[in-house]
Design a protein around this nucleic acid. Sequence first.
RNA 1: GCCGGGUUAGCUCAGCUGGUAGAGCAACCGCCUUGUAAGCGGUAGGUCGUCGGUUCGAGUCCGACACCCGGCACCA
Length: 660
Amino acid sequence: MFKIALPDGSVREVAPGTTPGDVAAAIGPGLAKAAIAARVNGELRDIGRPFEGDAQLALVTSRDEADALDLARHDYAHVLAEAVQNLFPGTQITFGPATDDGFYYDFAPKDRPFTEEDLPAIEEEMRRVIAKDAPLVREVWTRDDLIAYFKAQGETFKGEWAAELPEGEELTVYRAGDWLDMCRGPHLASTGKLDPQAFKLTRVSGAYWRGDQKNAMLSRIYGTGWLNKKQLQEHLTRLEEAAKRDHRKIGQEMDLFHLQQEAHGSVFWHPKGWMIWRQLEAYMRRKLDAAGYQEIKTPQLMDARLWEQSGHWGKYRENMFVVPDEVPNTEEQGPVISGDAAWMALKPMNCPAHVQVFRQGITSYRDLPMRLAEFGCCHRNEPHGALHGIMRVRQFTQDDAHIFCRADQLVEEVRIFCDLLDGIYKDLGFENYAIKLALRPEKRFGSDEMWDWAEQSLRDAVAATGRATPEFGWEELEGEGAFYAPKLEFHLTDAIGRTWQCGTLQTDTVLPERLDASYVGEDGQRHRPIMLHRAILGTFERFIGILIEHHAGRFPLWLAPVQAVVATIVSDADGYAEEVRATLAAAGLRVETDTRNEKINYKVREHSLAKVPALLVVGKREAEEGTVAVRRLGQEGQQVVKVEDLIAMLKDEATPPDLR
RNA sequence: GCCGGGUUAGCUCAGCUGGUAGAGCAACCGCCUUGUAAGCGGUAGGUCGUCGGUUCGAGUCCGACACCCGGCACCA
């Protein structure tokens, strides 16, 4: 007999062969019906998998939402795979996990990849599979049997995978009627436990076998899956809301910027978008000045020899724009470049240039830490498929800085940086962010000892700020560091819960060495400084994109490109509208007038859609009384106030947070 | 870069199986002088992404290329 301990503290004795489902049934019919899986000694398991000894048992019901969703999504993935093989015989199955909002399955198609047009038919077939309500039965197979089975089925991908699993490992398959897949499980008791109305196939895409570019391209089908129809619909609504925030859509609607074919991957900023940039840059400049940074500006184009020395030529050249350092002959067919041309490159990073500034003259230990900042414009030749609106571009401007310091100053510099970043994120409306440590990548410079030291120093420095905690999402990411240094990553959370990596801080001893940066120490000897690469926004392009999506275009007043529009009701008020505009402009507000021959309804609608924070309506009455009728974006009513009171009302909000 | 889908007026989109383009909004002109989310009428606007091919004839079919979108890989 096994002793099964329940969460209420009671213990039941059961015979070998008993399952969690049997225990649920013994407790009561209600629980038996509700239980969909079990946690046995903490491990999520099938409801029908017999106990193997004494155990702690907690039955899982749909009220345990995280577990229930995970199980359902994993089941949907299996149902998807079965449906696809029913409809498209010869399609090979590979791998299909649950995701944050659903599931996907990667297939090796027989003759053509799937397209979105295939999805409705596959959804229908999935509903048929669910309706069959086949029990999902767990079976333990030997590795050799599995390999033989997949070989017989023509499933070469699954076969390859099984063959690579350690010999002797206990492998499980899940069988649903005639169909089976190698899978760790666990699963729901049968396909019929899924709600046929709670999933939707959303898109198709390519995906490399095992995530490696060198491998075959598989055809992936994505779906979203939930416990019931209501949840599905809520999710679809959330997706629609997120789509409305898309910075590309809002950027066009608000006339902030555009992109075009002839400069793909580079942004054309319009007056309104550039105003946001200017406000953000001015704010950052004040923060950096106050934090002891010195701003510099360094060249865009530098000789290849410098990039060779820095190591970028070797490790980063595929991402660099390279130009010949000569005036090419221009023939009809185009420029001709001589064979022995020297090469220059547009900078993909600012660090080598900053080292050049550091190297000028002799630097004393008394000058450290030296914090050199630049709103540095960089170019990177990104893979074309990676470009995305203004979030991922080929020309961008970083809020970059390099701190040259001694090893004993490192912890303090990290602390100062974390505090600076913390304040800036909060000023910009981001209350929550996570910190991660990206560890050494395979492609790197420097000795293992150097990496050991650099990684540990960042670990210790963050711990010293008290932020290496679960509240800050602290974790270490293997292999994700830069080629010259490990990096701290700061991921902020936006208004709809998405996270974005923006800030970074890297501890680098490689570049000072390669570019021969040194300072004179107290001992009169030359020493290598440590170089901290750091950014807070990351890039202006991407950060403004994030701001647009975070605020859904409704910028806080201090960032809004147009802070108020004075809209007239009758043309008799045109002169007064201009007076109001001039008064507000003199008070430092960004205001436009709208004296077009249109009804006030029309103007209200148009400026509301344009997300103007304050609409100031003036008619005959206001002109006579020296007032405006203020309508704030997102609010229904309006408030009639004197112009000077309006200035007082808006002044604080219109002031950047660091100047309030 | 890879897989799939796109590219038609300033914007959003229609155009079936080939017979040389259409709507709404915006723009412009006029009427209306207007009170808080679209007042009414009229006018103009496109070598249908680029190049090539098939055809008597291509927005429509085929090919190449460019860019965009969704993913993959890469990444700030």
